[in-house]
Design a protein around this nucleic acid. Structure first.
Lengths: 132, 132
DNA sequence: TTCCCATATAAAGATGATCGATATATAAAG
DNA sequence: CTTTATATATCGATCATCTTTATATGGGAA
């Protein structure tokens, strides 16, 4: 599941919301980092509905326009929980490795014996050794 | 950044590795949940190299074949750290909202007044109210 | 020999995101 | 009154990335 999709489900986890509200909500959730576009949102809503992760909660007419509220389905809630847990684990794995790296741990095995190239080496893919 | 890309960087955070090794490493990191395909991996390696997030560390010839080791660049390490933090926050936001939801908090405002539709309601997009 | 494993590459197809444009009702500004 | 802004939903083209599938190769196993 990609980020926008995840954030849409997260927005709905707080209770039913309509499209425009989600756009602003997602911006808050992500501390302003993710700006959901209308095109992205409504396409995603269709997809999520087809996957039965969200459903139309109700519709209101405001100023003559439809305002459609969506909500998480049970399946959607479960899915979001699973995704959140997956993200948490991935983030944890990455930070653990980064910490070990800074502590010099990751460099103990071979990296210390073989100094890294400095990126200046000219390099043609597929023609490395010319072996055989 | 998508999941496979993130996991590739995470694999490299533990020290330089070659393609095939990353495939198995990613499987471990994700507890068997993510199986990186060769096509995904090598395309991603090219991309990440072009973005200067990884670099070729060295090459070895094993059994007549090239075994190319990649490593994280400094930029790549910083990027991975930033991404991990982003994931952590997103996961946190989602679980917080899910918790509030289970506690009934999210349902207090309008959802209790307006019972959700049960999904059986026939629904034609764009023809909702017919207002105006 | 034939098959599998480790390893790298390439190309086609699918999915989902982005960007940009369109539409409409109300309200505010000129 | 006309223009512009705001809130809201929809559509289409394009792009980025992932998946699937196929190909190549050397060594070891059946």
């Amino acid at each position: 599941m990609q980020e926008p999709t995840f954030l849409i489900l997260t927005a709905l986890a707080a209770g039913p919301q309509h499209g425009y509200g989600m756009i602003t909500d997602v911006q808050e959730i992500s501390a302003g980092r993710v700006r959901l576009r209308a095109g992205t949102l409504y396409a995603a809503l269709d997809r999520l509905q087809a996957e039965n992760l969200i459903a139309v909660d109700r519709e209101e007419i405001v100023d003559g326009r439809v305002r459609r509220y969506y909500r998480l389905t049970e399946e959607g809630g479960a899915r979001l929980a699973a995704e959140a847990e997956r993200l948490r684990r991935h983030a944890e794995a990455a930070t653990a490795r980064l910490r070990a790296r800074l502590a010099g741990g990751a460099l103990s095995s071979h990296a210390l014996r073989n100094r890294p190239l400095d990126g200046k080496t000219p390099f043609r893919r597929g023609l490395a050794g010319g072996a055989a």
